[in-house]
């Protein structure tokens, strides 16, 4: 069953700069898909557009979630529909404690505390969110919040960048277990594909210059990128023809 359907999406920034075009995507319930692409190709912009951030103006196309049109909805409305985003670079908010956000988003405080301990974030509860957190600590705090929101679709932006091997294993396992248990879906962005050791994903997409240029078996795509870089993607056989 299709959970998320993106049709012919075009996105521009406030300054009218086009950052996404001709985006078509289909994600089924229970499916994890992987998004590849060089720096600046538009991966993060795609996730931010799905979650409805106001800087990303949808000038064409639409996004359907569970058959419902969410193209014009606000982030908090989209979150309530069951989509949650773990940021690549979350902002630091002075004076707002991690604990406060956890208590706002979590439905069950016992389970929340359990997750906090599992992700080794107990020490950080009293700290201002992301302020002076290390790179890895930010990632753990993002995944914690992501899971506590209990979404049907997880948008995970580079969970494996700058994270030590042990933490990566932990984060990967938490995401995979959650998806399995809740029959949820996920879009995960990765560069090196490290996270693939810990999550079950079959399908991959490659983005280039704001477009999805190919999709296919995730392992094949990763192997090809690692071997030939993204240049080859341009002429690759899997290239999606319009």
């Amino acid at each position: 069953m299709t959970l998320l359907k993106i049709e012919n999406l075009e996105v521009k920034t406030e300054e009218k700069k086009e950052i996404l075009k001709n985006i078509n995507m289909n994600i089924n319930s229970g499916e994890i898909i992987i998004l590849f692409g060089p720096n600046g190709s538009g991966k993060t912009s795609l996730l931010k557009s799905i979650i409805g951030l106001p800087n990303y103006k949808k000038t064409k196309g639409r996004i359907l979630f569970n058959g419902k049109d969410i193209t014009e909805k606000k982030p908090n409305e989209i979150q309530k529909e069951g989509i949650a985003l773990a940021f690549q670079n979350p902002p630091e908010i002075k004076g707002v404690k991690l604990k406060e956000i956890i208590s706002i988003i979590s439905k069950n405080s016992v389970e929340a505390m359990h997750a906090v301990e599992e992700l080794k974030l107990k020490k950080f509860l009293e700290r201002d969110i992301n302020v002076n957190f290390s790179g890895g600590e930010k990632k753990r705090a993002e995944i914690l919040q992501l899971l506590l929101m209990e979404p049907k679709l997880l948008l995970v932006d580079e969970p494996d960048s700058g994270v030590d091997i042990e933490s990566m294993k932990l984060l990967g396992k938490k995401i995979n277990d959650y998806v399995k248990k809740k029959k949820a879906s996920a879009i995960i962005i990765t560069h090196q594909g490290e996270i693939l050791k810990h999550v079950k994903a079959k399908k991959g997409y490659v983005m280039l210059d704001g477009e999805i240029i190919c999709s296919g078996n995730v392992k094949k795509i990763l192997r090809s990128i690692k071997k030939n870089g993204y240049e080859r993607c341009m002429n690759c056989k899997m290239l999606i023809k319009k």
Binding site: I51, L53, P54, N55, K74, P75, N76, Q79, K80, A84, L85, F87, P90, P91, I93, I101, I104, I105, Q145, M149
Partner: peptide
Amino acid sequence: QKEIDYLMTRG
């Protein structure tokens, strides 16, 4: 604005 956006994605 980034802080507002962030918290809005938290519902």
